[in-house]
Simulated scan of single mutants.
Amino acid sequence: MSGSSRLGCRAPREPTRRARCEDGRVITRDDVRRAPKVLLHDHLDGGLRPATVAELAAEVGHELPATDPEELGRWFAEAADSGSLVRYLETFDHTVAVMQNGPALARVARECVEDLAADGVVYAEIRYAPEQHVEGGMTLDEVVAAVQDGFEAGMAAAGGRIVVRQLLTAMRHQARSMEIAELAVAWRDRGVAGFDIAGAEAGHPPTRHLDAFEYLQRENSHFTIHAGEAFGLPSIWQAIQWCGADRLGHGVRIVDDITVHDDGSVELGRLAAYVRDQRIPLEMCPASNVQTGAAESVAEHPIGLLTRLRFRVTVNTDNRLMSGTSMTGEMHALVEAFGYGYDDLQWFTINAMKSAFLPFDERLALIDEVIKPGYAALRRS
């Protein structure tokens, strides 16, 4: 999707059944799988293989709702598909429970990288909350080290086809954000790219963690904030204007500050205009947003309007296990819903790479040497 003509006063495009690439060929799911992809918003404890959950649970004696991997996978998807963010978050009780020792964390991290590489992801930032993995006696530092060991093993097995970095998350309803922020800074040259806060937004504004964000800014460190998913514009406003977030985790509710008039013309409020003008990245997760009730369906997801209006939109998975999704699944769903072609998919991917918490020269190298050539090859095939 290129050029300024699509920024006019027309309403969002209607969904289409069969998306086509620029020369008229139908874009298949396999085509999307072969495309290079960049993932900025994916939770480590939300992407386990069902078989791994079952095996690790048996080792530690944790009771699961099902022990057969296929049945367990269905349970996670059904339990998460409730329309409630609070209920959605409850599914993590089982995955977090089996990630309480070094070998388990390293295994989950390694398998995460392997799965992403097999899905065509070339760069990923994977987030998790170290404070949730200390029940087995590990220190926060040992938790990060175990995850890093797993990531490095996965990257080595992938033969250089993927780069993965950690994002350390603090839970917004707890009081350890400064501790986790300091941990992120201590590890930033050893595999940690930045910091995040997550958890239920209502009643837990990001400003409660202002000291951590001010510390990160003084340390010239990067951070993203879950905002505008289940809560509205105040959460986004605080994340940006009070806390100084580099990116917005989800940010779906920014559409509450955008008016689409009956004649199809579009009017941006002050906050929406600021987010677009400042190119603040939106880490959008369509499948997850539908599950948690932040959007009615993929076809009605605000990503269509926000893409047309040229916000800095990125496409992400959030929780691959709970949503039964992948980057291929997310992007192909958008292809089918909005008729996007290779130009659009490349635009999403470059948006994400530009927004990554990676040094500029490394971002540029991935764009010029991996992403653009990858899409060029798809267009020729």
Rank of each mutant, 00 (worst) to 15 (best):
I225D: 09
R190W: 13
Q241D: 14
T52S: 06
E114R: 13
E330C: 06
A230M: 06
W347E: 15
L64F: 08
F92C: 01
A184V: 13
A58H: 11
E362D: 15
A129T: 08
G73I: 12
D256W: 06
H133Y: 04
Y215P: 05
M331C: 14
L305R: 01
K354W: 03
T317H: 02
K354M: 03
V252P: 08
A35Y: 04
I126W: 12
G228V: 11
V252K: 04
A11M: 12
I367G: 02
A19W: 09
G374M: 01
L306P: 00
D256V: 06
M99E: 13
L334I: 12
I27D: 05
A145T: 05
C21T: 11
E267K: 09
E63N: 04
R308S: 11
V96M: 05
A376Y: 11
G374T: 00
L72I: 14
I27K: 04
G339E: 11
D42I: 05
P15E: 08
R13Y: 08
M155G: 06
A352I: 12
R247C: 05
L85V: 07
G232M: 02
G228I: 10
Y375H: 01
Q174N: 14
R33A: 12
G150E: 00
L105A: 12
R247M: 04
R87S: 15
N289H: 07
D30W: 00
L210N: 01
G150W: 01
D361Q: 13
E336L: 13
R87D: 15
E63I: 11
R380T: 15
G136W: 00
F76K: 10
E59D: 14
D246G: 11
S326W: 10
V275F: 05
R380D: 15
H222Y: 09
S265E: 12
L366Y: 06
E22C: 09
L358Q: 08
W347P: 08
K37I: 05
D119E: 13
L116T: 04
V335K: 06
G61Y: 02
R320Q: 08
E59N: 05
S326P: 11
D68Q: 02
G293Q: 02
G324R: 12
V60L: 07
I225T: 08
L216V: 07
D81P: 01
R380V: 12
A118L: 13
E152W: 03
E214L: 09
